[in-house]
Protein backbone atom coordinates (compact mmCIF):
# COMPACT_ATOMS: atom_id res chain seq x y z
CA UNK A 1 0.00 0.00 0.00
CA UNK A 2 2.31 2.78 -1.18
CA UNK A 3 -0.30 5.45 -0.74
CA UNK A 4 -0.85 4.85 2.92
CA UNK A 5 1.99 7.01 4.30
CA UNK A 6 0.99 9.92 2.07
CA UNK A 7 -2.58 9.62 3.35
CA UNK A 8 -1.38 9.50 6.90
CA UNK A 9 0.50 12.69 6.33
CA UNK A 10 -2.63 14.44 5.08
CA UNK A 11 -4.46 13.32 8.19
CA UNK A 12 -8.11 12.33 8.43
CA UNK A 13 -10.46 11.91 5.50
CA UNK A 14 -13.14 14.54 6.00
CA UNK A 15 -16.67 13.76 4.91
CA UNK A 16 -19.43 16.38 5.04
CA UNK A 17 -22.94 15.23 5.94
CA UNK A 18 -26.27 16.96 5.39
CA UNK A 19 -29.83 16.04 6.50
CA UNK A 20 -30.46 14.16 3.24
CA UNK A 21 -30.60 11.18 5.59
CA UNK A 22 -31.28 10.90 9.34
CA UNK A 23 -27.95 12.51 10.23
CA UNK A 24 -28.82 12.96 13.91
CA UNK A 25 -28.28 9.31 14.89
CA UNK A 26 -24.89 9.65 16.53
CA UNK A 27 -24.42 5.99 17.46
CA UNK A 28 -24.99 5.03 13.85
CA UNK A 29 -22.51 7.65 12.66
CA UNK A 30 -19.87 6.28 15.04
CA UNK A 31 -20.31 2.76 13.69
CA UNK A 32 -20.19 3.97 10.11
CA UNK A 33 -17.07 6.02 10.74
CA UNK A 34 -15.35 3.06 12.39
CA UNK A 35 -16.28 0.87 9.46
CA UNK A 36 -14.91 3.41 6.94
CA UNK A 37 -11.69 3.86 8.90
CA UNK A 38 -11.09 0.10 8.88
CA UNK A 39 -11.94 -0.14 5.20
CA UNK A 40 -9.86 2.88 4.12
CA UNK A 41 -7.01 2.29 6.58
CA UNK A 42 -7.05 5.95 7.63
CA UNK A 43 -8.85 8.17 10.06
CA UNK A 44 -12.25 9.50 9.01
CA UNK A 45 -13.98 12.63 10.32
CA UNK A 46 -17.61 13.48 9.69
CA UNK A 47 -18.33 17.19 9.31
CA UNK A 48 -21.86 18.44 10.02
CA UNK A 49 -23.21 21.97 9.65
CA UNK A 50 -26.48 23.79 10.30
CA UNK A 51 -27.48 23.89 6.61
CA UNK A 52 -26.60 22.53 3.16
CA UNK A 53 -24.92 25.72 2.09
CA UNK A 54 -22.09 25.59 4.59
CA UNK A 55 -21.28 21.97 3.73
CA UNK A 56 -21.35 22.81 0.03
CA UNK A 57 -19.04 25.74 0.53
CA UNK A 58 -16.62 23.51 2.43
CA UNK A 59 -16.48 20.83 -0.27
CA UNK A 60 -16.36 23.32 -3.15
CA UNK A 61 -13.55 25.16 -1.43
CA UNK A 62 -11.64 21.94 -0.91
CA UNK A 63 -11.86 22.20 2.91
CA UNK A 64 -13.36 18.72 3.07
CA UNK A 65 -12.87 15.75 0.78
CA UNK A 66 -16.32 14.29 0.26
CA UNK A 67 -19.90 15.23 1.03
CA UNK A 68 -23.32 13.64 0.92
CA UNK A 69 -25.45 16.37 -0.57
CA UNK A 70 -28.70 16.89 -2.42
CA UNK A 71 -29.10 16.52 -6.17
CA UNK A 72 -30.09 20.18 -6.54
CA UNK A 73 -26.86 21.76 -5.32
CA UNK A 74 -24.97 19.04 -7.21
CA UNK A 75 -26.45 20.12 -10.51
CA UNK A 76 -26.02 23.76 -9.60
CA UNK A 77 -22.32 23.38 -8.86
CA UNK A 78 -21.70 20.43 -11.14
CA UNK A 79 -18.52 22.04 -12.49
CA UNK A 80 -17.03 22.41 -9.01
CA UNK A 81 -17.93 18.91 -7.81
CA UNK A 82 -17.25 15.36 -8.83
CA UNK A 83 -19.84 12.65 -8.54
CA UNK A 84 -18.68 9.77 -6.34
CA UNK A 85 -21.67 7.49 -5.78
CA UNK A 86 -25.47 7.42 -5.76
CA UNK A 87 -27.43 5.43 -3.14
CA UNK A 88 -29.81 2.69 -4.16
CA UNK A 89 -33.13 3.04 -2.43
CA UNK A 90 -35.59 0.23 -2.96
CA UNK A 91 -33.23 -1.04 -5.60
CA UNK A 92 -33.07 2.17 -7.67
CA UNK A 93 -31.01 5.39 -7.56
CA UNK A 94 -34.13 7.46 -7.30
CA UNK A 95 -36.30 9.04 -4.63
CA UNK A 96 -39.30 11.33 -4.47
CA UNK A 97 -40.33 14.60 -2.89
CA UNK A 98 -43.41 14.29 -0.65
CA UNK A 99 -45.92 17.02 -0.05
CA UNK A 100 -47.31 16.50 3.46
CA UNK A 101 -50.11 18.09 5.51
CA UNK A 102 -51.20 17.49 9.14
CA UNK A 103 -52.95 14.12 9.50
CA UNK A 104 -56.07 15.77 10.95
CA UNK A 105 -56.42 18.04 7.93
CA UNK A 106 -58.74 16.09 5.66
CA UNK A 107 -59.66 18.93 3.31
CA UNK A 108 -56.28 19.62 1.74
CA UNK A 109 -55.61 17.19 -1.13
CA UNK A 110 -53.26 19.03 -3.45
CA UNK A 111 -50.65 21.73 -3.47
CA UNK A 112 -53.12 24.27 -4.83
CA UNK A 113 -55.30 23.80 -1.71
CA UNK A 114 -52.49 25.32 0.33
CA UNK A 115 -52.85 28.77 -1.13
CA UNK A 116 -52.48 31.46 1.50
CA UNK A 117 -51.36 28.93 4.14
CA UNK A 118 -48.19 28.56 6.15
CA UNK A 119 -45.65 26.28 4.45
CA UNK A 120 -42.51 24.63 5.78
CA UNK A 121 -39.49 24.04 3.54
CA UNK A 122 -36.54 22.07 4.74
CA UNK A 123 -33.59 23.96 3.18
CA UNK A 124 -33.26 26.42 0.30
CA UNK A 125 -30.59 24.11 -1.17
CA UNK A 126 -32.77 21.02 -1.01
CA UNK A 127 -34.32 19.50 -4.08
CA UNK A 128 -37.17 17.63 -2.45
CA UNK A 129 -37.67 20.15 0.32
CA UNK A 130 -37.57 23.32 -1.76
CA UNK A 131 -36.85 23.07 -5.48
CA UNK A 132 -39.55 20.57 -6.34
CA UNK A 133 -42.47 22.46 -4.67
CA UNK A 134 -41.18 25.69 -6.21
CA UNK A 135 -41.09 24.00 -9.57
CA UNK A 136 -44.60 22.60 -9.09
CA UNK A 137 -46.02 25.98 -8.27
CA UNK A 138 -44.27 27.49 -11.27
CA UNK A 139 -45.65 24.74 -13.46
CA UNK A 140 -49.12 25.55 -12.09
CA UNK A 141 -48.59 29.15 -13.11
CA UNK A 142 -48.28 30.39 -9.56
CA UNK A 143 -45.70 32.69 -8.10
CA UNK A 144 -43.93 30.60 -5.44
CA UNK A 145 -42.94 33.66 -3.44
CA UNK A 146 -46.53 34.89 -2.95
CA UNK A 147 -48.52 31.67 -3.12
CA UNK A 148 -48.18 30.97 0.62
CA UNK A 149 -48.96 33.55 3.28
CA UNK A 150 -45.93 32.55 5.23
CA UNK A 151 -43.03 30.18 4.71
CA UNK A 152 -40.18 29.07 6.93
CA UNK A 153 -37.21 26.76 6.78
CA UNK A 154 -36.57 24.05 9.37
CA UNK A 155 -33.10 23.16 8.06
CA UNK A 156 -33.89 19.45 8.10
CA UNK A 157 -36.45 17.04 6.62
CA UNK A 158 -37.26 15.47 9.97
CA UNK A 159 -38.11 18.89 11.35
CA UNK A 160 -40.46 19.57 8.44
CA UNK A 161 -42.33 16.42 9.48
CA UNK A 162 -42.42 17.72 13.07
CA UNK A 163 -43.54 21.23 12.09
CA UNK A 164 -46.39 19.88 9.96
CA UNK A 165 -47.27 17.25 12.58
CA UNK A 166 -47.79 19.81 15.37
CA UNK A 167 -49.70 22.13 13.07
CA UNK A 168 -47.12 24.88 13.03
CA UNK A 169 -47.18 24.67 9.23
CA UNK A 170 -50.23 23.82 7.15
CA UNK A 171 -48.07 21.93 4.69
CA UNK A 172 -44.49 20.99 4.02
CA UNK A 173 -42.14 19.51 1.43
CA UNK A 174 -40.00 16.62 2.57
CA UNK A 175 -37.52 14.05 1.25
CA UNK A 176 -39.58 10.93 0.53
CA UNK A 177 -36.70 8.63 1.50
CA UNK A 178 -36.35 10.39 4.88
CA UNK A 179 -40.14 10.30 5.44
CA UNK A 180 -40.34 6.58 4.68
CA UNK A 181 -37.34 5.83 6.89
CA UNK A 182 -38.86 7.89 9.71
CA UNK A 183 -42.10 5.97 9.27
CA UNK A 184 -40.17 2.85 10.22
CA UNK A 185 -37.91 4.34 12.90
CA UNK A 186 -40.24 6.87 14.54
CA UNK A 187 -43.76 6.22 13.27
CA UNK A 188 -45.24 8.63 15.84
CA UNK A 189 -43.76 11.54 13.88
CA UNK A 190 -44.98 10.50 10.42
CA UNK A 191 -48.36 9.36 11.77
CA UNK A 192 -49.15 12.99 12.54
CA UNK A 193 -48.75 13.81 8.82
CA UNK A 194 -50.41 12.74 5.63
CA UNK A 195 -48.73 12.58 2.19
CA UNK A 196 -50.93 14.29 -0.41
CA UNK A 197 -48.56 14.45 -3.39
CA UNK A 198 -45.50 12.56 -4.55
CA UNK A 199 -43.06 13.83 -7.16
CA UNK A 200 -41.85 11.75 -10.11
CA UNK A 201 -38.63 9.82 -9.59
CA UNK A 202 -35.67 12.16 -9.08
CA UNK A 203 -31.98 11.37 -8.66
CA UNK A 204 -31.18 10.34 -5.10
CA UNK A 205 -28.90 12.71 -3.16
CA UNK A 206 -25.36 11.65 -4.16
CA UNK A 207 -21.91 11.56 -2.60
CA UNK A 208 -19.69 14.19 -4.23
CA UNK A 209 -15.99 15.03 -3.97
CA UNK A 210 -14.08 18.25 -3.92
CA UNK A 211 -12.94 19.35 -7.38
CA UNK A 212 -9.23 18.72 -6.82
CA UNK A 213 -9.64 15.28 -5.33
CA UNK A 214 -6.87 12.76 -5.97
CA UNK A 215 -8.16 10.20 -8.46
CA UNK A 216 -6.92 7.26 -6.37
CA UNK A 217 -8.53 8.66 -3.28
CA UNK A 218 -11.84 9.05 -5.08
CA UNK A 219 -11.60 5.54 -6.43
CA UNK A 220 -10.83 4.14 -3.02
CA UNK A 221 -13.71 5.91 -1.32
CA UNK A 222 -16.14 4.98 -4.09
CA UNK A 223 -15.02 1.36 -3.85
CA UNK A 224 -15.61 1.42 -0.12
CA UNK A 225 -19.18 2.65 -0.56
CA UNK A 226 -19.91 0.26 -3.40
CA UNK A 227 -18.51 -2.68 -1.41
CA UNK A 228 -20.69 -2.02 1.64
CA UNK A 229 -23.27 -4.75 0.82
CA UNK A 230 -20.47 -7.30 0.51
CA UNK A 231 -19.45 -6.90 4.09
CA UNK A 232 -21.52 -8.05 7.11
CA UNK A 233 -21.08 -4.83 9.08
CA UNK A 234 -21.48 -2.78 5.89
CA UNK A 235 -24.73 -4.56 5.07
CA UNK A 236 -25.94 -3.94 8.62
CA UNK A 237 -25.13 -0.24 8.28
CA UNK A 238 -26.94 -0.10 4.95
CA UNK A 239 -29.96 -1.71 6.58
CA UNK A 240 -29.94 0.97 9.25
CA UNK A 241 -29.87 3.57 6.48
CA UNK A 242 -32.68 1.64 4.79
CA UNK A 243 -30.55 1.66 1.62
CA UNK A 244 -29.69 -1.27 -0.65
CA UNK A 245 -26.24 -0.07 -1.64
CA UNK A 246 -24.43 2.43 -3.84
CA UNK A 247 -23.68 2.72 -7.53
CA UNK A 248 -21.10 4.90 -9.25
CA UNK A 249 -23.95 6.67 -11.04
CA UNK A 250 -23.93 9.05 -13.94
CA UNK A 251 -24.42 12.84 -13.87
CA UNK A 252 -27.34 12.44 -16.25
CA UNK A 253 -29.33 10.95 -13.38
CA UNK A 254 -29.84 14.52 -12.22
CA UNK A 255 -30.84 16.03 -15.55
CA UNK A 256 -34.47 16.28 -14.49
CA UNK A 257 -33.46 18.25 -11.40
CA UNK A 258 -31.32 20.51 -13.53
CA UNK A 259 -34.27 21.09 -15.84
CA UNK A 260 -36.52 22.04 -12.91
CA UNK A 261 -33.86 24.39 -11.54
CA UNK A 262 -33.58 26.14 -14.86
CA UNK A 263 -37.38 26.42 -15.08
CA UNK A 264 -37.73 27.92 -11.63
CA UNK A 265 -34.90 30.34 -12.10
CA UNK A 266 -36.38 31.49 -15.37
CA UNK A 267 -39.44 32.70 -13.54
Amino acid sequence: MPLLPAHAERGALRIGLTPVFLDDQLSFLTRWRTWLERRLQRPVAFVQRGNYREVLDLVRGGKIDFAWVCGYPYVRYRRDLRLVAVPLWRGRPYYQSYLIVPADDEKTNSLSDLRGKVFAYSDPDSNSGFLYPQYRLTALGENPSTFFSRIFFTWGHRKVVEAVGVGLADGGAVDGYVWETLAEVQPALTDATRVIERSPDLGHPPFVARPDIDAAELRQFRAALLDMPGDAEGAELLHLLRLDGFIAGHPSLFDEIARMAVRVRLM
Binding site: V118, L168, D170
Partner: peptide, 12 residues
Protein backbone atom coordinates in the same frame (compact mmCIF):
# COMPACT_ATOMS: atom_id res chain seq x y z
CA UNK B 1 -45.29 34.95 15.18
CA UNK B 2 -45.18 31.51 16.76
CA UNK B 3 -46.97 29.81 19.66
CA UNK B 4 -46.51 26.72 21.75
CA UNK B 5 -49.96 25.61 20.60
CA UNK B 6 -49.94 26.22 16.84
CA UNK B 7 -53.33 24.63 16.27
CA UNK B 8 -55.05 27.08 18.63
CA UNK B 9 -52.88 30.06 17.76
CA UNK B 10 -51.78 29.60 14.15
CA UNK B 11 -48.99 31.67 12.68
CA UNK B 12 -50.19 35.07 11.50
Amino acid sequence: FVSSRPRVFPIG
